[in-house]
Design a protein around this nucleic acid. Structure first.
Lengths: 242, 242
DNA sequence: TAAATAGTGTCTCTCAGACAATATACG
DNA sequence: CGTATATTGTCTGAGAGACACTATTTA
């Protein structure tokens, strides 16, 4: 063992990390919010080749000196565009092949992230090339790389989460109403939900805190709630209708 | 646009893909099977530094010439050890940080895979360094890199799948009995299940084909089934007790 | 008052849990 | 027959779907 350790030292010293040809590696983030009754995704207009001028997901390369892990890389890249950390961040999947980048073999790990629109409104306005796009309009854009697929996959994942969790609530302000949350879930799922069912399961699982405040929307005022800390990781045992 | 295309050509020609320092990228596969009433995972004894001599998940680097995408890399690496393609292969997640590999910043995409023991028994015996390990024994091994964590995460994912799908059936031979499948799910979930509930939902969803054959295990013979093609992607709307 | 929005009552239906009962092998 | 394993019958309860109903605001 001791011998092996010494041997390993020598091996590491002689190891040239650029000696082998290997794929480009990056991270990309599909950051969503819910604003003006619409799902929106944050896009950045590319200033460099390849795909200069096209809209793309925020992302980039690992900084070997600064980043401790790939989550840190993703956070750094998102904060560059929004000035704040997203309320929710989860790995979606990794896409790697010969063709997705004209520079050659490349791999990207895509994240799904959620944030309240108000929390990053100022930050985004301070960044010239970043903009919230309504998801329905994004289909008509010619996005860079395979980012159209990444966005679709992220949205599909969020749709599933809407069926068995209240994770989408991270796309709302800290305080929100139940009709607001239901509207968001309906936008993700693509169909209307029974308000009784929607409310019953959230109440039963005791996921929200009633702040006591109300917000009026033209009719009876709705109660304002905020999430409990643990509610982001709660899953219902039974799905809503898919 | 035409101008931009020409400009992009020049950019690509001048691009040196080794110019930037970037992390090592690899894939690893947690390949499981169910044999002798035990969950087992395929491990490979490392012949090279780092961690020479330790047991590790099968995996390796992308071959930029041969592999079209990272799934192909993973398949190639698994087939090297088993001589056959696994019945089920799904991305688990990507692990990248400064410390997981002593050579420096490295990223690995881990897959969860399932195969029938009999389908690769010969192939594995032909590979000196590969071996099925019962999952309960793996906890006592000092595995290479962060592979203990990868295996735990893969197992946790399979446990979830056992609650809302019959994906674990890919770890069984093509023909299997319902008590066998239930035993496998119980091993994954870590508790006994109601056989009536287990069978009822599978029958209702019409997921299996009764082959007409039976297999005797000392008592009344059990019917042999095989999966329908689409059953691997079916999810129940309601989970079993977690 | 009417219109708009929020929230509740309650019936039905599906399906998992529990567990007793039956069926089919072997010796 | 007795034992072992497989398979079914059936009751109960949790919780989602449907939808009518009530409540609270503004105009």
């Amino acid at each position: 063992m001791q011998t092996d350790d010494l041997e390993e030292q020598g091996f590491l010293a002689g190891y040239d990390e650029k000696a082998y040809s290997r794929p480009l590696y990056s991270v990309d983030g599909a950051l969503f919010t819910f604003h003006e009754s619409m799902l929106k995704v944050l896009l950045v207009q590319r200033s460099n080749h390849p795909h200069r001028g096209k809209w793309a997901l925020p992302g980039g390369y690992v900084d070997l000196e600064i980043d401790t892990d790939i989550d840190a890389t993703m956070l750094r890249k998102l904060v560059e565009k929004t000035r704040v950390a997203p309320g929710y961040l989860e790995q979606l999947g990794t896409y790697g092949n010969q063709l997705r980048d004209p520079r050659g073999w490349s791999v990207t790990t895509c994240y799904t992230a959620l944030i309240a629109h108000q929390r990053c409104e100022k930050g985004i306005n301070a960044v010239a090339d970043a903009k919230w796009w309504p998801l329905d309009d994004v289909n008509r854009l010619d996005l860079a790389f395979d980012h159209a697929q990444l966005i679709n996959d992220a949205r599909e994942r969020l749709k599933q989460k809407a069926l068995y969790s209240i994770v989408p609530a991270f796309a709302l302000p800290e305080q929100f109403t139940l009709p607001e949350l239901q509207q968001l879930h309906e936008a993700l799922i693509g169909k209307t939900l029974q308000k009784k069912s929607f409310r019953r399961r959230i109440e039963q699982a005791d996921l929200l805190i009633d702040t006591g405040d109300k917000r009026s929307e033209g009719g009876r005022p709705a109660s304002l709630y905020r999430m409990k800390a643990e509610s982001g990781s709660f899953n219902f045992v039974r799905n809503l209708e898919g």
